[in-house]
Simulated assay, not measured.
Amino acid sequence: MFTDAGRVPDDFDNRLRTAAFAWLTSRTLQRTGNLTYSAIQSFVFEGHTIPLKDRVKGIWKPARLSSALSITTTYRPPGVVRPYDDLIHEGDGLLRYKWNGIERDEATNRSLRSAMQSGVPLIWFFGVGKGVFNPIFPVYVVGEEEENRQFILDADPSAIGEHEEGVAEQFLRRYLKVETRHRLFQAVFRGTVMRAYQGRCAVCRLQHGQLLDAAHIVPDRDEDGVASVVNGMALCKIHHAAFDVGILGIRPDLVVQIRSELMHEIDGPMLRYGLQEMHGKRIVVPSARAERPRADLLERAYERFRQAG
Protein backbone atom coordinates (compact mmCIF):
# COMPACT_ATOMS: atom_id res chain seq x y z
CA MET A 1 0.00 0.00 0.00
CA PHE A 2 2.84 2.40 0.78
CA THR A 3 6.19 3.16 -0.83
CA ASP A 4 9.49 2.61 0.95
CA ALA A 5 9.45 6.25 1.97
CA GLY A 6 6.09 5.78 3.67
CA ARG A 7 4.23 7.84 1.11
CA VAL A 8 0.87 6.85 -0.28
CA PRO A 9 1.32 5.98 -3.98
CA ASP A 10 0.06 8.63 -6.40
CA ASP A 11 -2.68 6.35 -7.75
CA PHE A 12 -3.80 5.14 -4.31
CA ASP A 13 -6.76 7.55 -4.19
CA ASN A 14 -8.05 6.46 -7.59
CA ARG A 15 -7.59 2.76 -6.84
CA LEU A 16 -9.35 3.05 -3.50
CA ARG A 17 -12.36 4.91 -4.91
CA THR A 18 -12.64 2.52 -7.86
CA ALA A 19 -12.52 -0.49 -5.55
CA ALA A 20 -15.05 1.06 -3.16
CA PHE A 21 -17.50 1.76 -5.98
CA ALA A 22 -17.14 -1.79 -7.32
CA TRP A 23 -17.66 -3.24 -3.83
CA LEU A 24 -20.74 -1.09 -3.22
CA THR A 25 -22.17 -2.06 -6.62
CA SER A 26 -21.87 -5.76 -5.81
CA ARG A 27 -23.34 -5.32 -2.32
CA THR A 28 -26.30 -3.18 -3.39
CA LEU A 29 -27.52 -5.66 -6.02
CA GLN A 30 -28.98 -7.65 -3.14
CA ARG A 31 -32.61 -7.15 -2.07
CA THR A 32 -33.21 -3.51 -1.09
CA GLY A 33 -29.99 -1.94 -2.36
CA ASN A 34 -29.49 -0.50 1.13
CA LEU A 35 -26.66 -1.26 3.57
CA THR A 36 -26.38 -1.22 7.34
CA TYR A 37 -23.71 0.83 9.08
CA SER A 38 -21.82 -2.33 10.07
CA ALA A 39 -21.80 -3.57 6.47
CA ILE A 40 -20.42 -0.24 5.28
CA GLN A 41 -17.58 -0.57 7.80
CA SER A 42 -16.52 -3.96 6.41
CA PHE A 43 -14.90 -2.76 3.18
CA VAL A 44 -11.42 -4.22 2.76
CA PHE A 45 -8.89 -2.71 0.37
CA GLU A 46 -5.50 -4.28 -0.28
CA GLY A 47 -5.61 -6.16 3.00
CA HIS A 48 -6.78 -3.22 5.13
CA THR A 49 -10.28 -2.53 6.47
CA ILE A 50 -11.18 1.02 5.50
CA PRO A 51 -14.50 2.46 6.73
CA LEU A 52 -16.45 4.15 3.95
CA LYS A 53 -18.24 6.53 6.32
CA ASP A 54 -17.85 7.92 9.81
CA ARG A 55 -20.24 7.01 12.63
CA VAL A 56 -20.79 10.64 13.63
CA LYS A 57 -19.33 13.07 11.10
CA GLY A 58 -21.26 13.78 7.94
CA ILE A 59 -18.12 14.32 5.86
CA TRP A 60 -15.62 11.46 5.92
CA LYS A 61 -11.98 11.46 4.83
CA PRO A 62 -9.86 8.39 5.64
CA ALA A 63 -6.43 9.35 6.98
CA ARG A 64 -4.62 8.20 3.84
CA LEU A 65 -6.64 10.41 1.47
CA SER A 66 -6.21 14.11 0.80
CA SER A 67 -9.90 14.60 -0.12
CA ALA A 68 -13.21 13.45 1.33
CA LEU A 69 -14.45 10.00 0.34
CA SER A 70 -18.09 10.21 1.39
CA ILE A 71 -20.88 12.35 2.81
CA THR A 72 -23.83 11.17 4.90
CA THR A 73 -27.36 12.45 5.26
CA THR A 74 -28.88 11.29 8.54
CA TYR A 75 -32.19 9.44 8.57
CA ARG A 76 -35.12 11.02 10.32
CA PRO A 77 -38.66 9.54 10.50
CA PRO A 78 -41.39 11.43 8.62
CA GLY A 79 -42.11 14.75 10.30
CA VAL A 80 -38.81 14.90 12.22
CA VAL A 81 -36.37 17.64 11.20
CA ARG A 82 -32.86 16.56 10.22
CA PRO A 83 -29.91 18.13 12.11
CA TYR A 84 -28.61 19.40 8.75
CA ASP A 85 -30.94 20.51 6.02
CA ASP A 86 -29.39 18.50 3.17
CA LEU A 87 -31.72 18.48 0.20
CA ILE A 88 -31.98 18.09 -3.56
CA HIS A 89 -33.02 21.45 -4.95
CA GLU A 90 -36.28 21.28 -6.92
CA GLY A 91 -35.07 23.94 -9.36
CA ASP A 92 -31.77 22.53 -10.61
CA GLY A 93 -31.87 18.99 -9.16
CA LEU A 94 -28.53 19.45 -7.38
CA LEU A 95 -27.79 18.36 -3.84
CA ARG A 96 -27.04 21.07 -1.28
CA TYR A 97 -24.89 19.69 1.53
CA LYS A 98 -24.29 21.73 4.66
CA TRP A 99 -20.85 22.40 6.11
CA ASN A 100 -19.90 20.48 9.23
CA GLY A 101 -20.31 23.12 11.93
CA ILE A 102 -20.23 26.80 11.08
CA GLU A 103 -16.51 27.33 10.49
CA ARG A 104 -15.42 27.42 6.87
CA ASP A 105 -11.99 26.00 7.70
CA GLU A 106 -13.24 23.03 9.71
CA ALA A 107 -11.04 20.10 8.65
CA THR A 108 -13.94 18.11 7.22
CA ASN A 109 -15.11 21.10 5.17
CA ARG A 110 -11.59 21.52 3.81
CA SER A 111 -11.58 17.86 2.74
CA LEU A 112 -14.81 18.33 0.79
CA ARG A 113 -13.46 21.53 -0.75
CA SER A 114 -10.37 19.56 -1.77
CA ALA A 115 -12.63 17.03 -3.50
CA MET A 116 -14.21 19.90 -5.42
CA GLN A 117 -10.83 21.24 -6.50
CA SER A 118 -9.49 17.87 -7.60
CA GLY A 119 -12.75 16.66 -9.19
CA VAL A 120 -12.71 13.27 -7.47
CA PRO A 121 -15.93 11.23 -7.16
CA LEU A 122 -17.58 10.65 -3.76
CA ILE A 123 -20.22 8.43 -2.18
CA TRP A 124 -23.41 9.90 -0.74
CA PHE A 125 -24.86 7.72 2.03
CA PHE A 126 -28.51 8.70 2.34
CA GLY A 127 -30.17 7.48 5.54
CA VAL A 128 -33.37 5.57 4.77
CA GLY A 129 -33.82 3.96 8.20
CA LYS A 130 -32.18 3.75 11.60
CA GLY A 131 -28.64 2.60 10.85
CA VAL A 132 -29.58 1.87 7.22
CA PHE A 133 -28.20 3.80 4.24
CA ASN A 134 -28.68 3.95 0.50
CA PRO A 135 -25.29 4.55 -1.17
CA ILE A 136 -25.53 6.90 -4.16
CA PHE A 137 -22.38 7.15 -6.25
CA PRO A 138 -20.51 8.68 -7.87
CA VAL A 139 -21.37 12.26 -6.95
CA TYR A 140 -19.15 15.30 -7.43
CA VAL A 141 -18.70 18.57 -5.55
CA VAL A 142 -19.29 21.22 -8.21
CA GLY A 143 -19.60 24.40 -6.17
CA GLU A 144 -19.89 26.08 -2.81
CA GLU A 145 -22.37 28.64 -1.48
CA GLU A 146 -20.51 30.21 1.40
CA GLU A 147 -23.36 32.55 2.29
CA ASN A 148 -25.50 29.47 3.03
CA ARG A 149 -22.61 27.41 4.46
CA GLN A 150 -23.11 24.60 1.98
CA PHE A 151 -21.59 22.71 -0.93
CA ILE A 152 -23.30 21.85 -4.20
CA LEU A 153 -23.07 18.27 -5.49
CA ASP A 154 -24.01 16.76 -8.83
CA ALA A 155 -24.18 13.22 -10.18
CA ASP A 156 -23.04 14.40 -13.61
CA PRO A 157 -19.25 14.03 -14.11
CA SER A 158 -19.29 16.53 -16.98
CA ALA A 159 -20.28 19.23 -14.48
CA ILE A 160 -16.73 19.36 -13.10
CA GLY A 161 -15.27 20.62 -16.38
CA GLU A 162 -16.64 22.97 -19.00
CA HIS A 163 -15.53 23.15 -22.63
CA GLU A 164 -16.62 24.84 -25.82
CA GLU A 165 -19.19 22.90 -27.78
CA GLY A 166 -21.60 23.31 -30.65
CA VAL A 167 -25.37 23.70 -30.51
CA ALA A 168 -26.01 19.96 -30.86
CA GLU A 169 -23.52 19.14 -28.11
CA GLN A 170 -25.04 21.77 -25.84
CA PHE A 171 -28.52 20.28 -26.37
CA LEU A 172 -27.25 16.76 -25.64
CA ARG A 173 -25.38 18.03 -22.59
CA ARG A 174 -28.50 19.68 -21.16
CA TYR A 175 -30.52 16.51 -21.82
CA LEU A 176 -27.96 14.31 -20.08
CA LYS A 177 -27.84 16.68 -17.10
CA VAL A 178 -31.62 16.45 -16.68
CA GLU A 179 -31.48 12.65 -16.92
CA THR A 180 -28.59 12.38 -14.47
CA ARG A 181 -30.21 14.66 -11.91
CA HIS A 182 -33.48 12.80 -12.31
CA ARG A 183 -31.59 9.63 -11.36
CA LEU A 184 -30.36 11.39 -8.22
CA PHE A 185 -33.96 11.93 -7.12
CA GLN A 186 -34.83 8.35 -8.08
CA ALA A 187 -31.94 6.86 -6.11
CA VAL A 188 -33.19 8.54 -2.92
CA PHE A 189 -36.77 7.52 -3.71
CA ARG A 190 -35.83 3.89 -4.40
CA GLY A 191 -33.74 3.53 -1.25
CA THR A 192 -36.55 4.87 0.93
CA VAL A 193 -39.27 2.76 -0.70
CA MET A 194 -37.23 -0.45 -0.62
CA ARG A 195 -36.47 0.00 3.06
CA ALA A 196 -40.12 0.76 3.90
CA TYR A 197 -41.35 -2.33 2.00
CA GLN A 198 -38.50 -4.49 3.35
CA GLY A 199 -37.33 -5.34 -0.15
CA ARG A 200 -40.42 -7.23 -1.27
CA CYS A 201 -43.09 -6.66 -3.92
CA ALA A 202 -46.25 -5.21 -2.40
CA VAL A 203 -48.39 -7.47 -4.61
CA CYS A 204 -46.65 -10.87 -4.81
CA ARG A 205 -44.02 -10.61 -2.00
CA LEU A 206 -41.08 -11.35 -4.35
CA GLN A 207 -37.82 -10.46 -2.56
CA HIS A 208 -35.18 -10.46 -5.32
CA GLY A 209 -33.81 -6.92 -5.40
CA GLN A 210 -32.72 -7.08 -9.04
CA LEU A 211 -36.34 -7.73 -10.04
CA LEU A 212 -37.89 -4.98 -7.91
CA ASP A 213 -38.71 -1.38 -8.78
CA ALA A 214 -39.70 1.59 -6.68
CA ALA A 215 -42.94 2.42 -8.51
CA HIS A 216 -44.68 5.78 -8.38
CA ILE A 217 -48.40 5.65 -7.63
CA VAL A 218 -48.90 8.97 -9.41
CA PRO A 219 -46.12 9.53 -12.00
CA ASP A 220 -43.40 11.94 -10.89
CA ARG A 221 -43.96 14.01 -14.04
CA ASP A 222 -47.47 14.76 -12.73
CA GLU A 223 -48.00 17.89 -10.62
CA ASP A 224 -49.14 15.71 -7.70
CA GLY A 225 -46.44 13.09 -8.19
CA VAL A 226 -44.68 13.80 -4.91
CA ALA A 227 -41.15 12.40 -4.45
CA SER A 228 -42.02 10.65 -1.21
CA VAL A 229 -42.50 7.12 0.06
CA VAL A 230 -46.26 7.81 0.40
CA ASN A 231 -46.36 8.03 -3.40
CA GLY A 232 -44.43 4.81 -3.88
CA MET A 233 -44.68 1.05 -3.72
CA ALA A 234 -42.11 -1.70 -4.15
CA LEU A 235 -43.28 -3.74 -7.14
CA CYS A 236 -41.66 -6.53 -9.12
CA LYS A 237 -41.10 -5.67 -12.75
CA ILE A 238 -44.14 -7.63 -13.97
CA HIS A 239 -46.53 -5.96 -11.55
CA HIS A 240 -44.92 -2.55 -12.07
CA ALA A 241 -45.47 -2.82 -15.82
CA ALA A 242 -49.02 -4.11 -15.31
CA PHE A 243 -49.75 -1.22 -12.95
CA ASP A 244 -48.36 1.39 -15.35
CA VAL A 245 -50.36 0.19 -18.38
CA GLY A 246 -53.62 -0.26 -16.48
CA ILE A 247 -53.78 -4.08 -16.40
CA LEU A 248 -53.43 -4.09 -12.61
CA GLY A 249 -55.03 -1.55 -10.32
CA ILE A 250 -54.95 -1.02 -6.56
CA ARG A 251 -58.04 0.29 -4.87
CA PRO A 252 -57.75 2.94 -2.14
CA ASP A 253 -58.55 0.17 0.37
CA LEU A 254 -55.33 -1.58 -0.82
CA VAL A 255 -57.01 -4.42 -2.72
CA VAL A 256 -55.61 -5.54 -6.09
CA GLN A 257 -57.88 -5.51 -9.13
CA ILE A 258 -57.09 -7.11 -12.52
CA ARG A 259 -58.86 -5.91 -15.66
CA SER A 260 -62.00 -7.97 -16.17
CA GLU A 261 -61.21 -9.16 -19.70
CA LEU A 262 -57.92 -10.69 -18.49
CA MET A 263 -59.73 -12.65 -15.80
CA HIS A 264 -61.39 -14.78 -18.51
CA GLU A 265 -58.34 -15.34 -20.70
CA ILE A 266 -56.50 -18.65 -20.82
CA ASP A 267 -52.75 -18.39 -21.25
CA GLY A 268 -49.58 -19.57 -19.59
CA PRO A 269 -48.75 -19.78 -15.86
CA MET A 270 -47.63 -16.13 -15.68
CA LEU A 271 -51.12 -14.90 -16.50
CA ARG A 272 -52.75 -17.35 -14.09
CA TYR A 273 -50.39 -17.12 -11.11
CA GLY A 274 -48.83 -13.72 -11.72
CA LEU A 275 -51.99 -11.73 -12.46
CA GLN A 276 -55.32 -13.56 -12.21
CA GLU A 277 -54.60 -15.03 -8.77
CA MET A 278 -53.60 -11.61 -7.46
CA HIS A 279 -57.13 -10.30 -8.06
CA GLY A 280 -58.82 -9.48 -4.76
CA LYS A 281 -55.68 -9.82 -2.66
CA ARG A 282 -54.60 -7.06 -0.30
CA ILE A 283 -51.17 -5.55 -0.88
CA VAL A 284 -48.44 -5.49 1.76
CA VAL A 285 -47.77 -1.98 3.10
CA PRO A 286 -45.11 -0.53 5.42
CA SER A 287 -45.58 -1.12 9.13
CA ALA A 288 -45.15 2.62 9.80
CA ARG A 289 -48.48 4.32 9.11
CA ALA A 290 -46.75 7.52 7.99
CA GLU A 291 -45.06 5.62 5.14
CA ARG A 292 -48.12 3.86 3.73
CA PRO A 293 -49.57 4.86 0.34
CA ARG A 294 -51.61 8.04 0.55
CA ALA A 295 -55.30 7.35 -0.08
CA ASP A 296 -55.85 10.32 -2.39
CA LEU A 297 -52.93 9.25 -4.59
CA LEU A 298 -54.25 5.69 -4.76
CA GLU A 299 -57.67 7.08 -5.70
CA ARG A 300 -56.16 9.04 -8.60
CA ALA A 301 -54.24 6.01 -9.84
CA TYR A 302 -57.30 3.76 -9.49
CA GLU A 303 -59.41 6.19 -11.50
CA ARG A 304 -56.77 5.97 -14.25
CA PHE A 305 -57.06 2.17 -14.07
CA ARG A 306 -60.86 2.28 -14.40
CA GLN A 307 -60.61 4.55 -17.42
CA ALA A 308 -58.06 2.25 -19.06
CA GLY A 309 -60.56 -0.61 -18.83
Rank of each mutant, 00 (worst) to 15 (best):
F43T: 05
E303S: 10
P138Y: 06
R15E: 10
G131E: 11
D156W: 13
M270A: 12
L235C: 05
V203I: 10
P252E: 10
A107G: 09
T72S: 13
V128Y: 07
G274D: 08
R294Y: 13
I102V: 09
I238Y: 07
T180S: 12
A20F: 04
V142S: 08
Y140W: 09
W23F: 11
T108H: 11
L69F: 04
E146H: 11
V44Y: 08
L172M: 12
V193N: 04
I238Q: 13
S42C: 02
D13S: 14
V141S: 03
Y302N: 07
S118Q: 11
V285Q: 04
P286E: 04
M116Q: 14
A68L: 04
A295R: 07
G209C: 06
I59H: 01
F305Q: 03
M194Q: 07
V141Q: 04
R31N: 14
P78A: 15
L176N: 14
Q30R: 12
E162P: 09
R173H: 15
V178P: 09
G191P: 02
A168M: 12
Y302D: 06
N109E: 02
I152T: 10
A107H: 00
E145P: 00
I71S: 06
H264F: 14
V139T: 05
Q41S: 06
P286M: 06
R7Q: 14
V128C: 05
T36N: 09
I217H: 01
Q41E: 09
M278P: 07
E162M: 13
D244A: 03
N34W: 02
T28H: 05
M1E: 15
S158I: 11
G280D: 07
P62H: 02
R272N: 14
V284K: 03
L176E: 15
G119L: 07
H216W: 00
P83L: 01
Y84C: 09
R64M: 15
K281A: 12
F43V: 05
A159N: 06
A215K: 01
A5E: 14
A215S: 05
L275V: 01
K237T: 13
F45D: 10
L153E: 01
V230S: 10
I71P: 01
D296H: 15
R17K: 05
P62S: 08
E277K: 08
R306W: 12
S114W: 00
E162K: 12
P9C: 10
V81F: 00
D4P: 14
T28V: 10
R82S: 14
L298K: 02
L298N: 05
F43L: 10
R300M: 15
H182L: 15
R174W: 13
Q41H: 01
L94K: 15
R294D: 13
L94W: 06
L122Q: 04
S70P: 03
W99D: 03
H240P: 02
Y175P: 02
F2C: 10
H264N: 11
I50Y: 00
Y273W: 12
E46C: 00
A22I: 08
H182W: 11
E145T: 04
S38E: 14
G143W: 01
D92Y: 10
Q307Y: 01
V230A: 07
A115F: 03
G33R: 03
R300T: 13
P252M: 08
A19D: 11
T49L: 10
